[in-house]
Design a protein around this nucleic acid. Structure first.
Lengths: 342, 342
DNA sequence: CTGAAAGCGCTTACAG
DNA sequence: CTGAAAGCGCTTACAG
């Protein structure tokens, strides 16, 4: 109590800035909000006063008067397993938080209640957040369709059923990413390219499968075998075992995520299959799972951190009334490593 | 703009609640804040009105008048690698966010600028957060010592140099956790227990080594060999390779984190060492890395998610002026799995 | 126990 | 371009 009180009294207000600068709070406020209707002289004096006092606007007061909380909610899935296993969320969050810190908005974490989507809706629609970022793949995201009519919302994945809906999505082009990885395998000389897919009940899973298929087709190659994984190393390993049991052999495999690829690589090596000599591997995600294996894996960097930043950027624009494309693609880049070396 | 405006007009205010309940806003406010000086009848009527309107207090207004932002900052390390590789942060964050949602506080993510701690200090001390949670191990956390004099702060790890400082720490008892795991190995009959440590420039690393040492000593066993790891599977694997090169053999190993244990296990198996028959393994962290290996690993659950919740709980108490222990221990539990089966 | 009133720290028409 | 004034939605002494 005492600590708090004493610290509070130190914090400079707009009034203090205005007094020091010798202007009214109105003028000081105009300078701070970047209003054009102020003289250069006012700007200089207020700016100096702000610097001298280390003034930072009170968010609560600003939010109250603007009727617009300077807060963005990042909805994170309640189902912990999904959230934990994957560095994906951490990267998106990191990127989003970093970008948010460069804006006037703060990023707050909200658990989405999957058992009770109505509750989540409540929390978001009651005026305490300026907009929301939706990350989950599977969840009952239809609830967010309605929400996005009354609150700015940006999705990190196109939600199931959201093909026609008037929603905003910031995501990687999964077809293109898969095609980039598979294409690299083909260019390198592979002629029998198998794949381990991401879960096919997600759009990302289906699109990555599609990208692989398209690539082989346009290269005039017959599609190789494919098995479904679940985004985990163990799932990738299991899929690789099934792939090896099949009649059709392969000289390369496109694995739809680095976590799965690390598991699949282990199986290959335990069977004495040499990578890249016998089987080349290309995957997606430039993270720990593609850099720390032996050999390290050729992959497509999905720029997940940048994705987080782009989501916040799109949302802030939406909140501030600017026009935002309904679909924004996050850049992708091929990173060549030993797993496809010649 | 239009969307936003229309949605705003829907949001019920305290005044609307008061009118519906037939009381003044003062009384309505008292009911909401749980003041004792209201009649049962008032409580009933206001409560009903709140439910009917779906009223949620405006955080900005409340923060403004209370001079206390209803916001808790979770400081996350700028150094991305550390943050990404480990499910630890994600678990703590999840637990913290979930607990925060049951309070009046919202959890906001702030990147701590390690290159410029002064900047982080600025952000926190300028009155826009009610308190802060500090997670990082290494960082220049001394800056937070000063901060904790003017702002409620809870550390997730005792910062270097923070032995005597008057700070609040919520953490697992690392010595006890290591002793629990190592003790299980001993009870099971191991007589030559080696260890792979966490980085020894962290207090957690040193304490876990200590717990292993204490256990062997009190069991009357000579300390086995030890090698330092870096919290990653690759680091655990490297440490295990070094351990195997040493003269002293071992029939069990305590690995100070599950990520390292998964790497170490791989090395053992690739050398034809059977787990648990030839070497038993016990580790810390009950996460993906201890459950998904073959065999699954006996471990000490550090209740990381609960830790996040406890950190928020302690911080909220601090903010609200209650007394909080300077040191709070997160519970630990042994989880027996195949890696130590007899 | 209750209500009228003041005020938290800002922003923004409004008048000049 | 500038300042005085009103007001954002709450909470809390103050008086009754």
């Amino acid at each position: 109590m005492q600590t708090t009180a004493s610290s509070r009294s130190q914090i400079p207000t707009l009034r203090a800035v205005a007094e020091l600068a010798g202007v009214s709070t109105s003028t000081a406020s105009r300078v701070i909000t970047g209003s054009p209707q102020v003289t250069e002289d006012s700007v200089a004096r207020v700016t100096a006063a702000i610097a001298e006092l280390g003034y930072v606007p009170n968010r609560a007061a600003r939010s109250l008067v603007r009727r617009q909380p300077q807060t963005i909610a990042m909805m994170i899935p309640e189902r912990t397993a999904e959230f934990f296993a994957d560095p994906y969320f951490a990267e998106v969050i990191q990127g989003a938080a970093a970008y948010a810190s460069s804006t006037d908005y703060s990023l707050t974490l909200l658990i989405e209640s999957e058992s009770d989507p109505e509750k989540t809706h409540q929390v978001l629609s009651r005026g305490n957040v300026g907009g929301a970022l939706i990350l989950s793949h599977h969840s009952a995201s239809e609830a967010y369709f309605t929400l996005s009519r009354s609150l700015p919302v940006v999705f990190g994945v196109r939600p199931p059923g959201g093909e026609d809906a008037d929603i905003h999505v910031v995501d990687v082009d999964n077809v293109a990413a898969a095609a980039l990885a598979a294409g690299h395998l083909v260019e390198r000389g592979a002629v029998r390219v198998a794949t381990i897919t991401a879960p096919l009940d997600t759009s990302a899973g289906r699109e990555r499968l599609q990208g692989w298929r398209d690539t082989l087709e346009s290269a005039g190659l017959a599609p190789g075998g494919w098995e479904e994984g679940d985004y985990t190393p163990a799932g990738g390993a299991a899929a690789m075992r099934r792939l090896l049991e099949r009649a059709d052999t392969f000289d390369a495999v496109f694995v739809a995520s680095a976590q799965m690829a690390s598991g699949a690589l282990g199986v290959l090596q335990s069977r004495g299959v040499r990578v890249p000599e016998d089987v080349a591997i290309a995957t997606l995600d430039n993270n720990y799972f593609s850099t720390s294996t032996t050999p390290p894996l050729t992959t497509v960097d999905l720029h997940t951190e940048e994705k987080g930043a782009m989501m916040v950027q799109a949302l802030v624009r939406l909140i501030e009334g600017a026009t935002v494309d309904t679909e924004v693609f996050v850049p992708i880049t091929l990173v060549e490593r030993e797993s496809t070396a010649l």
